Amino acid sequence: MTAASTAPSLTAAPPAFSPAEALALAERTFGRTGRLDPLTSERDLNFRLTTATGDSFVLKIGNAAEPAEVSEFQTAALRHIAARDPDLPVPRVVPALDGRIGVPLPGGEILRMLTWVEGHPMHRATSSPALRQSLGATAARLTRALEGFEHPGADHELLWDIKNAARVRPFLPSVTDARLHDLVALWLDRFEAEIAPALGDLPWQVVHADLNPFNVLTDAEGRTVTGILDFGDMVCTPRICDLAVAASYHADPARPLDTLAEVVGAWHTVLPLTPAEARAMPDLIAMRMVLTVVIAHWRAGLYPDNAAYILRNVPASGAGLAALTQAGRDTARARVAQILEARP
């Protein structure tokens, strides 16, 4: 199995358009012009467009390796969310002048425009009980808003999808730190033997699947979630994978179970966990940490010029995985069970 066949959109280079070319596309397609500022992205080309009146938008040029159906899936989901929970702070789709919400380009890329969501990047905020609880509650609202949403693109294969965690094993050699390598290998063995076979017992639906601190915005004080960005990793999977992703970046190595419980407890208040979800929760959090470590190391080797950005979440995920492993699966499950008892 080659890297390209495993994750073509993760191995294909991002679109190559100059700011001038992108601005011309925005004016011709959406009737909007102004100042363009580049935004970071793993596999697409994104810009912030600020008009003369001060309005801001996100101009997105999707990776040509990603099927058009996946782009359509993302914009349809944003429309579904807007209808189900209009107050959720997510981007809104901006139609083109001809009414289309995704415009194919000659190279196979898909051009889209979304509204700009104001806020401060969560990765710059200090994690706190208030922020973790706000994240858990907002993530649950988002997942609840996506209930019932169906689309042909929902079944696309995504390497970041926790249910596909076994597929990263070929990339394990890219993790050169011996202790981290062995820890990741331990969890991959557990996933294949115990975790994956139990996923069928969980409720499934379309989820955001990438609530990492670079995709979440907060208020100026860093206490409340004010925005959720980047719906490019949406997929149909066990619904608590959204919770697992969000919580995985907030495990304080000094007290991992207490900090994770704040995220999980707030989620449970909005979208109650089933007993099977509660049992699986600690394992799925650990598996998201595994994916972060392995995929980031692998991709940093492919794109050394962008390695700093690609590896940005690895230190926290590695430390969190070690702390969660040391705490023990039985202890972690008992802690989640306490949450269910306290908040039925």
Rank of each mutant, 00 (worst) to 15 (best):
T138H: 12
A22K: 11
L186I: 04
H120V: 14
T176K: 15
R132F: 11
A154D: 14
G34A: 01
E66M: 09
I162A: 02
I162Y: 11
V175F: 07
L284I: 04
R239L: 09
G107P: 09
L78E: 03
M289F: 07
A334F: 04
G320F: 02
A82L: 11
M281D: 10
L158M: 09
E341M: 12
A4G: 02
L271Q: 10
L180N: 07
A76P: 15
E42Q: 06
I285R: 12
T2C: 06
D182N: 13
W187C: 04
A82P: 10
D161I: 01
D44A: 02
E118L: 12
G222L: 02
L39W: 05
E72C: 09
R169T: 02
G62C: 13
Q74Y: 06
T50N: 09
W160K: 07
P95C: 01
D242I: 04
I162T: 04
L36Q: 01
L229C: 07
G102N: 11
E72V: 05
S9L: 10
S5M: 12
D252T: 01
P203K: 00
T176A: 13
E118I: 09
P253A: 00
E192F: 10
P86V: 08
A278F: 11
N215Y: 02
L25K: 15
T138W: 13
R167T: 05
N164E: 11
A7Q: 10
G148R: 07
A166V: 10
W187L: 05
L25E: 05
A286R: 15
I285H: 10
T325F: 12
L49K: 03
A20L: 11
G318W: 06
E21Y: 04
D258L: 12
P129H: 00
V290R: 07
V294A: 03
P106E: 09
C241S: 03
Y309V: 01
L291H: 00
A178P: 15
D98N: 12
A139L: 13
P8H: 12
A185C: 04
G107F: 08
L302Y: 05
G232R: 00
T269S: 11
T6S: 15
L97E: 02
P95I: 02
D55I: 08
P256W: 07
G265S: 03
A261I: 09
L131W: 06
P129M: 13
A22Y: 11
D182C: 07
E72L: 14
S317G: 03
L260P: 02
E262Y: 07
D44G: 03
I310K: 03
G54K: 01
A83C: 05
L202R: 07
R329H: 14
A130G: 07
P129I: 08
E66R: 14
W267G: 05
H181L: 01
H250D: 06
N212Y: 13
